[in-house]
Design a protein around this nucleic acid. Structure first.
Length: 477
RNA sequence: GGGGGAAUGGGCCAACCUGGUAUGCUGUCAGCUUUGGGAGCUGAUGAUCUGAGUUCAAAUCUCAGUUCCCCCA
């Protein structure tokens, strides 16, 4: 199988098929079957993300997938943003429903209708609830497995606070969670942006989002946090009595890491020309054992393998591949699947009293004595984590560039990915300038780097006004 | 939203222009031989998207429909 990551689109299509990550033949456009190997990794991603979300004080709940139309219609900006891509349930059996139900495209309106019943006073705040679920959006943009499908899997956390300040603190906390899980554990680098006003979540005051870059230089939005202000609390009547006994609307935020999409970033960030490369902690199989034998040695070798496998499986997820394929076939197959470590064991090794330990990320082969094996595996696991993160970070660091000249912008985007440019503003009236860039280079304004205080001098890159802010431009998925 | 392409055994594909027994690879199953970087032989298995039309005869031509994929906005 030929794989060439420099042709990313083709590489991605091939790898999702060859590594058995998804099956596109279900027969509804934009709906794909997520295959076991992908789901097992996503489950591990979920576990790590949910632990972090719970550590930050969220508790889990599960809300219905159907949302009555009148809930969905309560917040006008939200309606405008989402209704064009909602799937509707209009019939039950043979009868038309009196009110149609939306298949949730996101759960603000489902959850906040209940929050209004639950929040009464300061004792109920902060309210921090998350759910793991799937959502449906009839996307009009091109669909691509994991990157953008019409049904996808995510976590959504929805919070209520007594004050604006508390809500803004949550935005920073969400960024910390993203850093901890997506960067440190999944080893996916990103930049955290405050989106311009014309590109925020429908119904939000502000949107903050982590953008990573795919190998073709196009940005992919990973989790986003929305500062909802009081837009929804007013629409849904979520209020508490303050110290003076007066009604106050709560301040809200929500956070939505789409696991299926982050999985796409995981594939794209770490994979190579041999297939997937999975971080040690996310691999459905961490160590694959490949026995090498002839007929007369088969029994001995398999016995040794099973003995060793039993020991190791107390610490790791281990798979003994005792199928009838040849060793070479197995090597290639498990490399395609991204298994981080391989142990080869044959008569030669038994004779020498060693096993062969092979790293997927570097291809490095290590002859190891059984007594040292646990130690060496632990070291290798650590080294793989560090190596994947370092490689990804190094690649990503070069993907940031600067320019103040619009004629130079196209080149910079082509050669790097994110380009910082001086801009007149990130308010709605500056959208015209963003449109100029979009028209000229098919690139989008991703927003201001969160936490950055750099101030530009001179003019906006696209108009004659003075620049007031640095914004970042990239092509996007 | 615009454009392009495709639909044939489980997967990939040939035959289509020029209508006539549907090709090859792969997979699966059975057997034998193999196994330190994608093994070999023998046999079995299994297919023309739907609906109309033209015709002695349609995978092939015509019309309609359905679905998917890719590229661009």
């Amino acid at each position: 199988m030929k794989l060439d990551k420099s042709d990313f689109s083709e590489w991605y299509n091939t790898i999702t098929k060859e590594a058995e990550l998804c099956d596109l033949r279900y027969g509804i456009k934009g709906f794909v079957v997520f295959m076991p190997w992908a789901v097992m990794t996503m489950n591990r991603m979920y576990t790590l993300m949910e632990k972090e979300v719970e550590d930050k004080g969220h508790v889990p709940a599960l809300f219905p997938a159907l949302i009555p139309e009148h809930y969905l219609m309560k917040e006008s900006d939200h309606v405008e943003g989402f209704v064009p891509e909602v799937f509707w349930v209009t019939k039950a059996g043979v009868n038309e429903l009196e009110e149609k139900y939306a298949m949730r495209p996101t759960s603000e309106t489902a959850m906040y209708s209940m929050y209004a019943l639950w929040v009464h006073g300061l004792k109920d705040l902060p309210l921090k609830i998350y759910q793991r679920c799937q959502v449906w959006r009839h996307e009009t943009k091109a669909t691509k497995p994991f990157i953008r499908s019409r049904e996808f899997y995510w976590i959504e956390a929805h919070n209520c606070f007594a004050t604006r300040k508390d809500a803004l603190k949550q935005v920073r906390e969400d960024m910390e969670m993203t850093e901890e899980v997506i960067h440190k554990q999944y080893c996916i680098p990103f930049l955290f942006f405050k989106r311009p006003q014309w590109d925020k979540f429908a119904g939000a005051e502000n949107t903050y989002a982590a953008d990573t870059l795919m190998p073709d230089g196009r940005a992919l939005q990973l989790p986003s946090t929305h500062m909802l202000g009081q837009n929804f609390s007013k629409a849904f009547d979520i209020k508490y009595k303050d110290e003076n006994g007066e009604d106050q609307y709560v301040w809200q935020t929500c956070y939505g890491p789409a696991i299926s999409r982050i999985y796409a970033a995981l594939i794209a960030t770490h994979g190579d020309d041999k297939g997937l490369v999975l971080p040690f902690d996310l691999a459905p199989v961490q160590i694959v054992m490949v026995p090498i034998y002839r007929d007369e040695t088969k029994a001995t070798v398999l016995k040794e393998c099973k003995k060793l496998g039993k020991k190791l499986s107390k610490l790791y997820t281990v798979k003994l591949d005792d199928s009838d394929n040849t060793p070479g076939f197995k090597f290639n197959q498990w490399e395609m699947k991204g298994v981080p470590l391989r142990i080869e064991l044959g008569p030669r090794d038994i004779e020498e009293g060693t096993v062969m330990l092979v790293r997927r990320d570097t291809g490095e082969k290590l002859k190891v004595k059984p007594a040292d094996l646990k130690k060496k595996i632990k070291e290798a696991a650590k080294a793989i984590r560090a190596n994947l993160k370092q490689n990804a970070d190094k690649w990503f660091a070069d993907k940031l560039s600067f320019t103040e000249n619009i004629d130079d912008l196209g080149n910079k985007i082509d050669m790097h990915g994110f380009v910082r440019v001086p801009f007149c503003s990130d308010k709605v009236e500056a959208k015209a300038c963003a449109d100029i860039i979009k028209e000229k280079y098919h690139a989008n304004v991703r927003g201001a780097l969160f936490g950055s205080t750099d101030k530009p001098h001179g003019k906006c890159i696209a108009c004659e006004k003075d620049a007031t802010i640095y914004l970042y431009v990239a092509r996007q998925y």
